[in-house]
């Protein structure tokens, strides 16, 4: 079962929850899908057992076979191609590797080549399995790496997927592969606006989800009000605590190191698994 941890905005506590909860379940998988800036490894320090490269397929154009019909340029919905001085020019950062230009070319002037955009580290950290996706610097498309991670992960295990912030394609790749979604929300007005976006997306995908309210002890909590008005299931609340913040900022897995936090995260775990109908 895949449990995805999402948030509209960054810094709400996705990694805090996914790392601490995964650490409570023997033989679970912690999967860091925030491939632009994975940080779960800073807590788990996994031993890397295998590294899987992730490639994007990009087209190469043969100037001898190209007749300059521009069908490929017109077809490319990502506007990655231009025809300049009798040659097709590709803007690699815009190309999604869909293969459309190769299919549309009637003159067999397009072949494809693999271009490495990142890799997946597969490892172990104490009793849990880890997967960390890494996107190479200057690359822009995170989705193929995330999709590859979901292809590789053993879904018979309990998988805690630490997802990217926002509501873009990379987040959608996580949502569609998740059996249950935990939205970690921050009690600010900005947090509320971002929460709205992610809830809209989850509704679109018909996802099964619940919300954890992080840093919930503010006098006026717009997010809590918003959630309660709409009868959205709240999995639990965490108040802001300096000790928790300090220990986490040092990379400490508090669900393992402190009994108080151990029981707090265990309660969250039971609640999540109950809501997710995990047996």
């Amino acid at each position: 079962m895949v449990i995805a941890f999402l948030s509209g905005k960054g810094g709400t506590g996705k990694t805090l929850f996914s790392v601490n909860l995964a650490s409570l379940v023997k033989d679970s998988v912690y999967m860091d899908c925030d491939v632009e800036e994975p940080n779960g490894h800073l807590f788990l320090h996994p031993e890397i057992l295998n590294q899987v490269p992730v490639n994007k397929i990009i087209p190469v154009f043969d100037p001898d076979l190209c007749v300059g019909c521009r069908q490929c340029v017109d077809f490319c919905r990502y506007n990655a191609l231009a025809f300049i001085h009798n040659q097709v020019h590709i803007e690699g950062s815009l190309c999604h590797g869909c293969g459309g230009c190769k299919i549309i070319c009637e003159h067999q002037a397009v072949r494809e080549t693999a271009h490495e955009i990142g890799h997946i580290d597969i490892g172990k950290s104490n009793k849990i399995n880890t997967m960390t996706g890494w996107m190479n610097v200057i690359e822009e498309a995170a989705t193929p790496i995330i999709e590859e991670m979901f292809d590789h992960v053993d879904k018979t295990k309990l998988v805690f997927a630490d997802c990217p912030p926002g509501a873009s394609c990379s987040v959608m790749a996580c949502i569609k592969n998740a059996d249950y979604v935990v939205v970690v929300a921050e009690a600010t007005l900005y947090g509320q606006e971002n929460l709205k976006l992610i809830l809209e997306l989850l509704t679109e995908f018909n996802s099964h989800y619940g919300i954890i309210l992080n840093q919930s002890n503010t006098q006026d909590n717009p997010v809590k009000r918003y959630i309660m008005e709409r009868n959205i299931p709240i999995l639990g609340e965490v108040n802001y605590e300096l000790e928790l913040a300090k220990r986490s900022s040092m990379g400490e897995i508090v669900s393992i190191s402190k009994s108080r936090y151990h029981s707090m995260f265990k309660k969250f775990l039971y609640q999540i698994l109950k809501e997710a109908n995990y047996e």
Binding site: C76, Y78, N79, L81, A82, I84, E91, L94
Partner: peptide
């Protein structure tokens, strides 16, 4: 255009 407007304009 949602993306790649620079390429199209340059073309």
């Amino acid at each position: 255009q949602p993306g790649g407007a620079g390429v199209k304009v340059a073309q």
